[in-house]
Nucleic acid binder design. Structure first.
Lengths: 239, 239
DNA sequence: GGAATAGTGTCTGTGAGACAGTATAGG
DNA sequence: CCTATACTGTCTCACAGACACTATTCC
């Protein structure tokens, strides 16, 4: 499956895969689901979960299938978006493989189960996965992971996806904690509350309250309908 | 080049193409470069320029090559970014073809020349290309074009890419015109100027001035070094 | 001077940062 | 009472929208 195009270039067919960057917040840290590869290439190395796109499958459909297979969680409750496509000619030693990377966000999930080609799947703090500059993950997954982190951090500024990290119902404090963990900075509780409640459709009150061990009960909210956050909630460092 | 994976799905290799959405502003309208297809499928229909990714070519490299071939303009002066990847199983009647769409922005360019597989290349107002809901372009290019327009409009809010539409040097009024055309709304000249000049690295003064036929000469600027625009310049409708 | 376009100044409302103060629970 | 957490109010400054005004060119 190779031919010469009319301009003198050689064209080869490629395998198409999807790779998933699945984020959650656990133990006050951003964690990513990594598998340990069970076969060559990169056997034994950590990698993002993923797999081949099947013949009659759309790209996002393949991503949702992998998500289900790797996490055991129905993808309906998760935020899923296309992150970007990576296709350097030498990114996979087996041949030309182009991968479409997806970004998935969800609340703290049950411990992942291993996929078919993997020895095990584990939640790993992103800081650990990327420590001293990366080059720990298989293929170009360091790059993909770095891009995914940056995308997620930026998305928090301009969209309401932070709610995707919270299991419903949630409190404003829990939502604030998402921002604090993702950005590595504390936010003023008072100003944060004002911003979130003042933005139409960010969250919706349930009428319920928490019954905490200590402290005043907090009002509970669900995700709102609005996807964009206008005006945005900017990181202090970015200003 | 087809096999059954270990979970019972059939996997086929795919052809990988890049498609380009090349925008410019001409005659006070957003225009996109479209080719007329010279062969089946969709022979005679308008389409986005694009082509196969070659065996030893990176994706962006392929995009730059196509850009050069279609516009005759060196891609160094153009803004180029990956837009997204489209891979519905039936998007190309010839078989499985996954396309990586790129968004390119440039100042008004010389009339395009036809590519190898095309009868001709023409600048077309986007409004015309998408009129009454689309379904004019080949493949799923209507969808890609719509996504590209939306992406470009949004990027104007949060980044400094509007300068990519201006040929250097340019005036603040020319830059404002870019926003007005892209958003379909007029902006207050005074407030716009204050915003642009107040944002570090958006534009850089050249020290030169225009010599217009009528009116006061305007100060000329070049693109600044900053890519992000913080705080953003939001569309009125989006607020 | 008049037309045309560029550029300045200023008033006002909104929203964000800082932070003091109040509320409601358990012990 | 105290502690812990949730929530409210307020002061101030930065910034955006509206818009009046001034500047510089050609005719």
């Amino acid at each position: 499956m190779e031919y010469e195009d009319r301009r003198g270039g050689t064209v080869t067919a490629a395998w198409v895969t999807v790779d998933l960057t699945i984020f959650t917040i656990r133990d006050d840290a951003l964690q990513v689901l990594l598998i340990e590869r069970g076969k060559e290439p990169f056997e034994g190395r950590a990698a993002l979960p993923g797999g081949y796109v099947r013949s009659n499958e759309a790209l996002e459909q393949a991503a949702r299938r992998e998500l289900r297979e790797e996490t055991g969680v129905g993808s309906r409750h998760l935020h899923l978006e296309q992150l970007g496509t990576y296709g350097a000619p030498d990114r996979d030693p087996r041949g030309r493989v182009v991968t479409v990377a997806y970004l998935a966000l969800g609340p703290d999930m049950p411990e992942a189960r291993a996929g078919t080609d993997a020895r095990g799947a584990h939640w790993t703090p992103v800081e650990e996965a990327l420590h001293d500059g990366g080059r720990h993950l298989a293929f170009d997954h360091d790059v993909i992971l770095r891009d995914a982190v940056e995308r997620a951090r930026t998305q928090l500024e301009y969209t309401t996806i932070a709610t995707a990290f919270c299991s419903e119902p949630f409190t404003i404090s829990e939502l604030r904690r998402v921002y604090e963990v993702m950005w590595g900075q504390t936010l003023d509780p008072s100003n944060f509350r004002r911003k979130v409640l003042g933005a139409d459709g960010f969250v919706a009150a349930t009428g319920e309250r928490t019954m905490p061990a200590a402290g005043r009960p907090a009002v509970l909210y669900r995700r709102g309908v609005e996807k964009r956050l206008v005006p945005p909630l900017l990181r202090a460092a970015a200003r």
